[in-house]
Simulated assay, not measured.
Amino acid sequence: MANFKNYGGYSTSFIHSALPVSLPLLQAEQQADLAPVEGSPNNLAHYINYSLALSQSRGFPYFVAANIDGRLFKKVSRTDNWRKDSRISAVHQWGEELYKARKSDFDKGHMAKREDVQWGQTVLEARAAADTTFYFTNAVPQRAELNQQIWADLENYILHTESVPNNLRISVFTGPVLCPSDPVFVTKVLGKALQLPTLFWKVVVFTKDEEKLYRVGFLMGQEQLLRKAKIVKPKTVKIKVLATERFMEFEDAETYQVNIGTIEELTKLILPAAQDIYQDDRPTKLVLEEVDLNARLATPEAIAELGYRIPNLVI
């Protein structure tokens, strides 16, 4: 039995006591749609080093907020101990009944990455934090072909190459775009029609000088992958929001850097305030480049350690 009292959750003062990073703000209708969480007056589900807001109508999070401390990262073994959160009604969470359903050809996509929160003063603390990422509340169906490498490495890249050596702390906000026009899964689950998110977003907040906060945003899509695998039903109506030329890029399972305003427009969330670094209305597809072994000697130590760079990332 989990000791939820030890789940401190996301900290707004994590980066610096003088630079608080608030949680995303929900619209009134989103707030009313939050799944009730036992013991939480604001219906936020707190885990170790991260928190989330779960939509009861969709069974997926509106957002997941995580604190990452690279200095305290520990290597631990992976458990894969997926389970539902007992503080939340099972009817508001999708579990194995979704991921083992017919045509469920997708992964349990972590919103808060296991490695992101896998830190603490001791290995035991890091292992406990990593284990809490295996609640189904933190999972959203994602096709395995998604461009996970860049998506997964963004935080580490910013953490190890852009933050100053004495301040290796960042806050990351992630989630699916829960759009009313999301396509419907071809298999009913527990007798219910289920809409699958096609877009995922990530916002990284950090500081370079301990005087100002900066933020960068990213989007990734999987609509074409879902439709190609015939996991979702064919379109019957034209999607007004995503059919615009502006958002068509995000169907192709690549990772794009975008304006924070684009993410706010899609999610209807108000994201924590910070200085926007990327201010181009045109999304930029990110490219991951392996660092040549000989070239590593001439690169910054952190890039050499990671073995890659993202040359067109604006931070």
Rank of each mutant, 00 (worst) to 15 (best):
M1K: 13
N3A: 12
N3I: 11
F4K: 10
K5M: 11
Q27T: 13
L34F: 08
V37P: 00
H46V: 00
A53D: 04
L54I: 12
L54Y: 07
Q56P: 03
S57R: 11
P61G: 05
D69T: 05
G70F: 11
R71H: 14
F73W: 13
F73P: 00
K75Q: 15
V76R: 11
R78V: 12
T79Y: 09
N81V: 01
W82T: 06
W82F: 15
A90N: 12
L98T: 03
A101E: 03
S104D: 02
S104C: 09
F106K: 06
G109S: 12
Q118D: 07
E125L: 10
A126N: 09
A129T: 08
D131I: 03
Q142W: 09
E145F: 01
Q149S: 15
I150A: 02
L154P: 05
L154Q: 09
G175N: 09
V177K: 00
P180T: 07
D182Y: 10
A193P: 05
Q195Y: 01
F200R: 00
W201M: 03
T207W: 03
E210A: 15
E211C: 14
V216I: 13
G217I: 00
G217D: 01
E223G: 08
E223L: 12
I231D: 05
K238Q: 14
K238H: 12
I239L: 11
I239A: 12
A243V: 03
F250I: 01
D252S: 13
D252W: 09
Y256K: 01
I260H: 01
G261W: 04
T262C: 07
E264T: 07
L269N: 05
L271R: 01
A274C: 07
D280V: 00
D281G: 05
K285R: 14
L288M: 10
E289K: 15
L293G: 08
L293H: 13
R296D: 04
A298T: 14
A298H: 15
E301V: 12
I303P: 00
G307D: 04
P311M: 02
P311T: 01
I315Q: 03
